[in-house]
């Protein structure tokens, strides 16, 4: 049996441990905010945090998760009150919205490591996340806004 935390709750799992975390989250834990885009680590739609680091959950089998802690978009806030969500909302970033939980999880990880990222830092971190709708310019702005919001809060 494998035990790990998702958004602070403990989950135990006895099934097929080759199952990627993405499908565990979506099908077993019913946390559907984490999205499927490619299944190959190419698009970032499935990005979550593993012990605070951004990872692609589609290529992360559940078997390596014993004792680890996972955060998904649902773990950011219930009401879109997290600074990243507020920035996203203020700038009306989302078009179809499908890629955005992955984008925000990447962005949150970036801001945790780097309180005032440059354009280049943002490009480096965010270029693993595809947005077919083309929201990159607003994502970039929103990351900077979120950085400002976070500074104001602290």
């Amino acid at each position: 049996m494998i035990k790990f935390q998702v958004n602070g709750e403990t989950h135990s799992y006895r099934g097929d441990t080759s199952m990627p975390l993405l499908w565990f989250l979506r099908d077993i834990a019913d946390l559907k905010g984490t999205k499927f885009g490619c299944g190959k680590g190419l698009c970032g739609a499935c990005t979550v945090h593993l012990n605070g680091q951004a990872v692609r959950s589609c290529v992360l089998p559940v078997q390596v998760l014993d004792g680890q802690s996972v955060t998904t978009v649902e773990g950011l806030s219930d009401d879109a009150g997290h600074s990243i969500q507020r920035a996203w909302q203020t700038l009306n970033v989302a078009q179809c919205g499908y890629c955005q939980s992955g984008q925000m999880m990447s962005a949150v990880a970036l801001l945790q490591a780097n309180k005032a990222p440059s354009d280049e830092d943002i490009n480096n971190m965010m270029s693993g996340n595809i947005c077919r709708c083309g929201t990159y310019p607003r994502i970039k702005k929103a990351i900077k806004l979120a950085a400002d919001l976070a500074i104001k809060v602290n």
Binding site: K32, G33, E74, A80, Q85, W88, Q89
Partner: peptide
């Protein structure tokens, strides 16, 4: 603002692949 924004940003929005 987009009326669906909060749902989209909290992961609550239901897409075709999310139907239960």
């Amino acid at each position: 603002g987009n009326l669906d924004a909060v749902d989209m940003l909290t992961g609550r929005a239901v897409y075709g692949i999310d139907v239960e």
